[in-house]
Structure formats: C-alpha cells, structure tokens
Simulated scan of single mutants.
Amino acid sequence: MDEHLEISEPAQHKALGHPLRHRLLMALGQQPATISQLSRTLEQRKGNIAHHMDVLYTAHLVEIAETRTVRGGTEHYYRRAARRLTFLDPDATPIVLRAVADELAVSEEIGGRLRNVRLTAEQARAVTSAIEEVIDDLEDAGDDAERYGLLAAVWKPQPAGTS
C-alpha cells in the first residue's frame, strides 16, 4: 500500500462521483474487507457494493490485499490503494462532504466546531496554511490504533441572495 495518492486521473474523479464510494474508501481505511463484510458494515446489498468496488478497483483507488478460497469460491479482501488520499479538484468537495456527513450520522463525534468570523483574505490564507500544516504534521499511530476522521475547512460563504 502506498502512503499517499493524489486524486488526479479522470477515471479517479469519475469513480469518486458517488458518495457510497467515499464511504467504501473510509471503511477500507479501517482494515481490508470483503464485499460481504462491507455490505454488512454499510448496510447495502452485496451486488451494489460489488459494483462500486469494481469502479474503485478499475480506477486504482482500491487493490486486492488477499485472496482466499471459501466453500469453492474465491473471496477477495480489498484495501485502499494508499493510506492517504488527497483530492486536488475543488469540484470534488461537495461529494466528499456528503460522504463525511453520511459517516458522521452513524459515528461517534469526538469534537468539532463551526465558526463564522470576519477575516481578510490574507488572514484566511494564513489560517488555511496553519490548518494544513497541523494536518500534514500528524503522525500515524500505526495499525493498532483507532482510526479517526478529520475534517478541516476554511470557506467564503456566498452573500445572501446570490447563487
């Protein structure tokens, strides 16, 4: 498994066009899993999971970690292709946020804060830079530690009455 993967290929962007595929990638961040295990975890039909996993596999976002023979059939354990995925395309943000919202709805929230504050453009860039530095400097505690999601964003809301 690679340490880092920048999402840049058209096939990867297309593959990430569905919120369930983001949830699959989040689930596979915990540990490798089979279609059946993912189906139970995400409460989705196996056929639905298999279809979306095939799309992610074709886009090289997941890979087969292990293959086992079970009752005469072959069972694949999938894992993410990289520990860390970076989404460079700003058009991916709404889809990623929907997937995070779906995950938050069924997860234990440890902490979070939403704040609106008046800043200059320079201050907003400085805050963004500081947040990115904190995130980039985090050390992975290893496979035995629990996995946590981390969402940090700075955005400029649209004025009322504009679209």
Rank of each mutant, 00 (worst) to 15 (best):
L56D: 04
A121L: 12
R23F: 02
L24H: 06
L56E: 05
G142N: 07
H22I: 04
Q31R: 15
K14C: 05
A82S: 10
L119Y: 07
G112C: 02
L38F: 01
I110Q: 06
T41N: 07
H51R: 13
N48V: 14
G47D: 10
L42S: 02
E109I: 15
H76V: 01
A141G: 12
E146F: 03
T120H: 08
G72Q: 08
Y77K: 03
A99L: 03
E3T: 10
E6S: 10
A141V: 03
M1Y: 06
Q31A: 15
T86Q: 12
L24W: 04
D2Q: 15
A15T: 03
A59V: 09
R115A: 14
A145G: 06
R68G: 00
A81S: 15
L104Y: 05
A33P: 04
Q44C: 11
T93M: 10
L24D: 00
R125W: 06
S8I: 14
H60C: 06
T69K: 15
R84Q: 11
G111T: 11
I135E: 14
V106A: 12
E66S: 06
L56R: 03
T93H: 08
E146S: 11
T34D: 09
H76A: 08
R115F: 02
I35D: 05
Q31N: 09
E146N: 08
G111W: 07
D140R: 01
L114I: 12
E66A: 05
D143W: 07
Q123H: 10
D144T: 14
L114Q: 12
A92V: 07
D54L: 11
G112F: 03
V127G: 04
L25S: 05
L85Y: 09
M1R: 10
I131H: 09
E43G: 10
E132C: 09
G72V: 06
E43N: 15
D143R: 09
E133R: 15
M26S: 06
E66Q: 13
H18L: 13
T67G: 00
M26K: 05
S8R: 14
A121V: 10
E108L: 09
D91L: 12
T74E: 14
E63W: 03
A145H: 08
D54C: 02
R118V: 11
A11N: 14
A121C: 03
L119K: 07
A65H: 07
P32G: 04
Q12D: 02
T74V: 13
